[in-house]
């Protein structure tokens, strides 16, 4: 991996009145890196992610995402990133093809580009026969793969994934991670938030937020060594024990 950060955060802070949700966090994420962003409920994860996706203006500090400043160019950030979450991703009552067309149009692709992308994407996912099916009728695992591919439709440098693989069977889950590895290999940076520590073990590096700060940041292997833990679950519990009230 070459040193080419696509997310840079310096002393990034967000206060809500007297409450500091994100407390001067600093980190960088490289091009093509799969970066896990973890934290207990209420640790500040969502607030940090909202700042990095241009949805929330920070109180102080600096950050740039895909080369755009979070203070000045929030709109540009939104256009240049991909986003997928468990809760919101695709329209269930539109067909597979209609969803692709809708998101392609939202991201400003031409009709021709949308046509090409639809063809490629359906072929890659093996969904050509289901192109005219409503998304709601697809198995969860297919929806997740489709949602991920659609999040990449405008070829963003970064894709944000919010708990991407919950609830699917272990084989489908691995197929999904293989899509992520492939995207990362092609140079897309993947920023993953999750509650599930075994999911974090798939990431190149992982940061763990506790009380608004980044309490640890390293490869899963190194974190397990540092905290003398067998699993990321144990690492997390050791770090976050003090905030167990939430």
């Amino acid at each position: 991996m070459t040193h080419e950060p696509v997310i840079i955060a310096r002393q990034l802070t967000k206060r809500f009145g007297p409450f500091t949700a994100v407390d001067a966090i600093s980190f960088e994420v490289e091009k093509g890196e799969i970066f896990g962003f973890l934290g207990a409920n209420g640790a500040g994860k969502t607030t940090a992610m909202r700042m990095l996706t241009g949805l929330l203006t920070p109180t102080s500090g600096q950050a740039s995402v895909a080369g755009f400043d979070v203070f000045r160019s929030a709109e540009q950030i939104k256009r240049h990133i991909g986003y997928m979450s468990q809760r919101f991703s695709l329209y269930e009552d539109l067909t597979v093809k209609e969803n692709i067309r809708l998101f392609g149009t939202i991201y400003g692709l031409t009709q021709r580009q949308i046509g090409d992308k639809t063809f490629q994407l359906l072929r890659k996912l093996g969904l050509s026969d289901e192109a005219k099916q409503q998304v709601g009728a697809l198995p969860l695992g297919w929806k997740q793969k489709l949602a991920f591919s659609i999040a990449l439709i405008h070829e963003p440098k970064i894709v944000f994934l919010d708990e991407p693989t919950g609830g699917v069977d272990p084989v489908t889950r691995r197929q999904f991670w293989e899509l992520i590895y492939q995207a990362a290999h092609e140079g897309v940076t993947v920023f993953v938030t999750t509650h599930y520590m075994d999911e974090s073990e798939y990431c190149h590096r992982v940061s763990i937020m506790v009380d608004g700060r980044i309490a640890a940041l390293d490869t899963p292997r190194q974190l397990k060594l540092t905290y003398e833990a067998d699993s990321m679950d144990e690492v997390f519990v050791k770090l976050a024990r003090t905030t167990s009230l939430s």
């Binding site: 207990a40 409920n41 919950g166 976050a240 024990r241 905030t243 939430s246």
Partner: peptide, 11 residues
């Protein structure tokens, strides 16, 4: 334990 963080899950 679906949607609950690792500390709460352990508890």
């Amino acid at each position: 334990t679906t949607g609950v963080d690792a500390v709460s899950r352990k508890e």
